[in-house]
Amino acid sequence: MKNILLLSAACLLFSACLKDDLDPATLTTNPLDLAYDGTPLVVLEHDTVRITENAQGLPQDTIFEQTVRVRTELLSPLTSWTWRITDLNTGQTWNSGSSTSYTTTITSPQLGNTYCFQYTLIVQYAPTKPYSICSVANL
C-alpha cells in the first residue's frame, strides 16, 4: 500500500513534467515572417549599366539595370506573391507582377553613384520582410 502510493505520487510528479520552450521571439525561420533571419529570400542576380543605340547605331542613352530574384526553394510550392519596390534614393514606391525575378531600370544614371532599392514580396495582401539591395552604376 505504502509503496504503491509513493510510487504513484513519484510517477505523477516526476515522469510527467511539461516544459514550455516555445518563445515567439525565437520563431524566425519562416521566410514569410517579418522577423525572418535566415537565408535572404530576395537576392541580387546581376546589375549592369548599358548604352542604348539609336537607329543609326549611335549611342543614345545609358541605362542602369538591377535584377533580383526570389529564392523559390525557400517557399512552399503554392506560394504566390507580387513585388513591391521602393527606390531608396527617391522614396518612390511601385508594385509589379508575380514573376520569380524582377529588373529595376534607371535611365541616364550618374555613373559611379550607388542606387539602392528595397524589395518586398506581398503575399496574400501582406508584406514580408523587405530586402535592400544596392548597386554602383559602373560601366
Binding site: 525561420t29 515572417d33 503575399v123 496574400q124 495582401y125 501582406a126
Partner: peptide, 20 residues
C-alpha cells in the same frame, strides 16, 4: 503552424496573439 504557414498576416497573429 508557424513553420507551415504561408500568410504573413496569419504568422503575425500566430506569433503575437495566439501563441502568447
Amino acid at each position: 503552424a508557424y513553420d507551415e504557414n504561408r500568410s504573413p498576416t496569419r504568422i503575425d497573429v500566430l506569433k503575437y496573439e495566439t501563441i502568447p
